[in-house]
Structure formats: structure tokens, C-alpha cells
């Protein structure tokens, strides 16, 4: 692929370039476009569905480490305060993550629609959460295993790399707006 043909997965678009029907927040502010193939949209929607299942089901021995990474302790040396934080914040954190996953799933199914900044932030957070869970499942625990993940081309690692690529471009698009 020549450089000229390259289309980033997520890009910041000029307001003048936006389909008026796609304007969600009154057409004001930065707009972003997702340039995904249908298969990519379907893949991300499926992963978001799995993320929602993980967030809303009772933890078991397989999901406990993943949930621990999604909901890390706020207090490392005070069990009482930590229990209080989890009691007060955990539910809200789950609700916030589920709301982001739901809205991003809907956005992805509307092909051609541009996203506002808040929607693009929700997309970024959700893709990052999926990548975090996948990375935890792949046992990426230090810089060495992270470097190995970069060169491993098995399907799971390829997916991990792909999500990193999407995320990198999302951050770039949001930073440039």
C-alpha cells in the first residue's frame, strides 16, 4: 500500500466535511470518522459484547484476574478504606464502563456516521479496556513480555497488536483536534 492510499482507522474531520445527518451534538465541536471495514466493525462490536458479559457477570476463577485489572485497588495499604472505595465506587465504575460499551456498540453499527469528541473518547476507553483484558489474558506483565507480544504473530497477539494500532490512531486523532 502506498502512503497516499493509507487511511487511518480513526481520523479527525473538518466540520465542513461532515454529513449534516451525522451531526449529533448540533454539529459543533470536533468530529471524527471511523474508517473500518464491515468485518472490523463486527469484530469490535463482538469484543464489546464480550466485555459487557465480563463486566456484568459474577467473577469466577478465570475472570477474577481480568476484573482485578479493570477495577484495581485504590488503597494499597489500608484494607478498610479499600473496602469502602470498592463498596462506593465499584458499581458506578461498572455502570460507566457498561454505558460506554453500549453507546460505542450502537455507534459502530451506524456505518458512515461521524462521532463527536465525547463519543470518540468513549470509543477510545472501550477499545483500551478490551486491549487491557486481552493483554492480561496473554500474560503481558512486564516490558519483556510486552516486547515479545509485538513480534508474536499468533491470532491472539495479532488482535492485541491490531487494537493497539486502532488505539494509537484514536489518540492521535483526539490529540490533533
Amino acid at each position: 500500500m502506498s502512503e497516499r492510499d493509507f487511511v487511518p482507522p480513526v481520523e479527525h474531520v473538518d466540520n465542513s466535511d461532515v454529513d449534516p445527518l451525522g451531526a449529533f451534538d448540533h454539529g459543533e465541536g470536533a468530529r471524527f470518522r471511523l474508517n473500518f471495514e464491515t468485518e472490523e466493525r463486527e469484530l469490535i462490536v463482538r469484543l464489546l459484547g464480550e466485555m459487557k458479559d465480563l463486566l456484568t457477570s459474577e467473577p469466577n476463577e478465570h475472570t477474577a484476574p481480568l476484573l482485578h485489572r479493570l477495577f484495581p485497588p485504590a488503597f494499597h495499604d489500608d484494607e478498610e478504606k479499600e473496602a469502602e472505595y470498592q463498596r462506593l465506587m465499584r458499581e458506578e465504575l461498572v455502570a460507566s464502563r457498561v454505558a460506554a460499551v453500549d453507546s460505542v456498540s450502537l455507534l459502530l453499527m451506524e456505518e458512515g456516521r461521524t462521532l463527536g469528541e465525547g463519543e470518540t473518547m468513549a470509543f477510545m476507553q472501550s477499545v483500551n479496556a478490551i486491549r487491557l483484558v486481552l493483554g492480561t489474558m496473554l500474560d503481558i506483565t512486564d516490558d519483556e513480555s510486552a516486547e515479545e507480544a509485538d513480534i508474536n504473530d499468533s491470532p491472539e497477539y495479532s488482535l492485541y497488536g491490531y487494537l493497539g494500532w486502532v488505539l494509537e490512531w484514536t489518540v492521535t486523532a483526539l490529540s490533533g483536534s
Binding site: 484495581p72 485497588p73 485504590a74 488503597f75 465504575l93 476507553q125
Partner: peptide, 13 residues
């Protein structure tokens, strides 16, 4: 809380 929402490994002391 907001850092956790964004999946950063945050704590307080």
C-alpha cells in the same frame, strides 16, 4: 475513580 474509568493503574495514599 476517573483514572480507573480510563483503565490506568491508579491508587492513592
Amino acid at each position: 475513580f476517573r483514572l480507573h474509568e480510563h483503565s490506568l493503574w491508579a491508587s492513592m495514599e
